[in-house]
Simulated scan of single mutants.
Amino acid sequence: MRKAVFTAAVSAAVLLAAGVACLLLWQEGIFLPNRPSKEQFPVRGVDVSAHQGEIDWPVLAGQDLSFAFVKATEGSSFTDAQFAENWVEARSSGLRVGAYHFFSFDSSGESQAAHFIKTVPKREGDLPPVVDVEFYGDKEQNPPSREEVEARLVPLLIRLTEHYGVKPILYSTGKAYKRYLAGGYEEYDIWIRDVFFTPSLPDGREYAFWQYTDKGRLPGYQGDEKCIDLNVFCGTEEEFRRYGAQP
């Protein structure tokens, strides 16, 4: 009996140590739970912000990447410090580029749209604009209602569609998607974040992009954040070439 208890305790300790080791390796970007196959997802890209600091775009783009989403704006007044440089240099490196806006629960959709449009040029061949809907600050503990979010989000999406001539992409985490997007917004493509599993949306929808890790480690940037977000397009290379074309 004592031997069995001892063996069980040792096994539990080994499993705990292995779990802690995996967690540490994941935090350092050495162990990635998700590794989507190149055969299934041939089109790959990154999303970046000022947290990656100065980016050597030719170096970054040369690592089997096809696209980059660049943070542009947040709310009604914040502009990412690296946007202007990233926007120009990413495209010059041969990548297809799109800009994303971090959605604010606290300001009107009209003012957020005006800020994004003022910041992001309209250029043929670029990926559609992205609206990033996720919790921030205390919003997960004190979430706005779906109706409150819709009252801000819908005017933002409509205005961006009118200006850029293509419907925006909606980026979201699993929790935010379930609360605010599931069962609605069918006319907008989804970019979903899941860094541990292959995503499965609660309403059964397919998604156009998948952010499969926020712990990527690639040469080509020097910033406060040593990791970078890695993504795949959920389609073929030919479908990606046609993706987001203005009607």
Rank of each mutant, 00 (worst) to 15 (best):
A84P: 07
F78Q: 11
D126I: 00
S37R: 13
A114I: 05
N86E: 10
E89I: 09
G75H: 01
E147S: 10
R91F: 09
V48C: 11
S111T: 14
H51L: 14
D80E: 03
T73E: 01
C22F: 15
E54T: 14
D126F: 00
R35A: 13
S108M: 13
K118F: 05
A9S: 09
V46T: 01
P144S: 04
D106I: 09
A99Y: 02
E39K: 15
D56H: 04
D80T: 03
L32F: 08
K38I: 12
G125E: 01
L95E: 08
D47A: 07
E89V: 00
G53W: 05
V149A: 05
A18Y: 12
G53M: 04
W26I: 11
L24W: 15
F105L: 06
G19M: 06
A8F: 07
P121N: 05
K122R: 15
V120Q: 01
F135T: 00
A72H: 04
V133Y: 04
S76H: 12
P42T: 08
A114R: 11
T79F: 07
A18K: 03
E28D: 13
R123W: 10
F69T: 00
S108R: 06
L24A: 13
V43P: 02
A114K: 07
V59S: 14
A13G: 13
P129L: 07
E74I: 06
R96N: 06
S111E: 15
S66E: 15
H101A: 00
H115I: 05
R44M: 02
S66D: 12
V130R: 01
W57V: 04
S111I: 15
G19A: 12
G109W: 03
P36G: 12
A13W: 05
E134D: 06
L24T: 14
E85S: 13
S108C: 13
S111K: 15
D47Y: 02
T79M: 12
C22T: 14
V88N: 06
N86R: 03
G53S: 12
G19S: 10
K118P: 08
Q40T: 10
A12W: 15
K122P: 11
L15Q: 13
L95A: 11
F103H: 09
V133R: 01
Q52E: 08
V43I: 07
A9L: 15
A8V: 08
P58T: 08
